[in-house]
Simulated assay, not measured.
Amino acid sequence: MDFGLAEDHASVRDSVRNFARAELAPGYLARSKRSDFPWAVHKQVAELGVLGLLAGADHNPLDAEDFVAAGLAVEELAYADVNVANAVIPVMLVASLLSRHGSEHVRGEWLGPLVGGRTYVSFCLTEADSGSDAAALRTKAVAVDGGYVISGEKASVTMAAHASALIVTAQTYREGVHLGVSAFLVEMDDPGITTSGIADTGWKPMGRSMVHLDEVRVDEGALLGAEGAAFRSVLNGFDFTRPLLALTGVGCAQASLDETAAYVRERSAFGSPLARFEGVSFPLAEHSTTLEAARLLCYSALWKRGSGVRHTADAAMTKWYGPKMAGNAIKECLLLHGNYGYSAEFPFEQRLRDVLALEIADGTAQIQKIIISRELFGAEFTPYRG
């Protein structure tokens, strides 16, 4: 076994780390409290080549798609600004989907601007009555001459307020026959689309929205992949977005641990540095251990993805364990700073708000445990239909 980084991996990590800690970290708190998306920063990330790592040969700065490199990039970004990092992951997912399943026209029109940080395409899966139970979604796409008519409502759509297009999943019908769930690229300015924002406790620069689709007409080229094939060709992307999401929590929590370790070395009580008290040092030692375990689990899942090894259970493990451990670590760091840590002038309470979203996005911990159980015992022993 070799846990060392390849030359490309080290290059990606170092270039993103240098940029993130010098340029992103100082502005995290100010950006995190605003609802406008930091397009200038997003374009700087794009200039590093990060957004193209999974976008196909024409847009990838590396020789081939590299999921470990993607993980290193988002972890380093999250160390400095967890929201900037989490805005990158949907781009990676959508770019991968478009490069693999988009028509020539769709790839030509959208991939360049997307990985260049000049536009955004949001992913629409969740609905009010079908979050993790994606097969129960109610949005419909009815085939008509030359295209499809889509109607329905999507909930919890990240970045919808800033997006130029959406990838919409819908139950598909042709001549009254149900074909299964398909995915479509839908432009935001198409007639029949309206949005309404959701007031959240974190992730404010990205934001979430409800998206309403009222008989939205798209042409045949908007279909991604085959009709009814979204679960096979599109939604398996969650097996790499889940470890990426977990790594943003790990990176954010690592920054909190590093800051707290520096603080307790300098802060004294009863004539001794806080770091000498086991009530302070032991919790930090424990959180350092759980974060390292989460990190290794994530990179193992991403390595398996790139190597073609089955990794659905691994991805689910990262998704319930990583965000939970990250949140626990950040909370401990806040408390170890005492009254200062509770202040909004320090980053801990904001990081806690932002990281909490990771326990929900791409499936809650309960759903991840169902997936793990399904992989362990077989589908007949779980309520999950996937």
Rank of each mutant, 00 (worst) to 15 (best):
A313H: 04
D258A: 12
A326M: 07
C298R: 05
A269Q: 11
F282I: 07
L224V: 14
R208N: 04
V280A: 03
T290A: 01
A222Q: 02
K204I: 06
Q254R: 15
P205W: 06
W303D: 12
D219G: 15
L247I: 07
S209G: 09
F231Y: 14
S272H: 07
F240V: 10
V250D: 14
A326F: 05
G249K: 07
L247W: 14
H311P: 06
G202A: 09
P323G: 06
E266A: 15
S256T: 11
F238C: 05
V280P: 07
G279P: 03
G221E: 15
A275G: 03
T241N: 03
G327Q: 12
Y299P: 01
A315Y: 01
R305C: 08
S233P: 09
T241D: 12
K304P: 13
E278S: 15
F238L: 08
P323W: 04
A315H: 11
M210L: 13
L284F: 09
M325G: 00
G221F: 09
A294E: 00
S281E: 08
G322H: 06
T248D: 09
M317S: 00
E215N: 14
D239V: 06
E259C: 00
G237W: 02
W203M: 14
A301S: 13
R295T: 01
G228V: 12
A293M: 11
V211A: 13
R242W: 01
M325R: 00
T290Y: 04
A293E: 08
D219L: 10
G271M: 13
A230P: 08
E292A: 13
G207Y: 10
M317C: 09
H287Y: 07
A229M: 03
V216F: 04
L302N: 07
G249A: 12
K319I: 02
G221A: 15
G251A: 08
C252E: 00
D239K: 07
W303H: 01
G308H: 08
E227P: 11
E266C: 00
S300Y: 05
V218N: 09
T260N: 10
L257W: 14
L224W: 06
K319Q: 12
G251D: 01
C298G: 00
A293L: 11
F240G: 06
G271E: 05
M206C: 08
A255Q: 08
R295D: 06
V218L: 13
A226E: 12
T260R: 00
E215C: 12
L245E: 00
A275F: 07
A255L: 08
G202T: 09
T312P: 01
V280D: 07
A313V: 09
L235Y: 07
V280K: 05
T201E: 14
A326S: 14
V280W: 05
G249S: 01
H287G: 00
M206P: 03
V218W: 10
Y299S: 00
V211R: 10
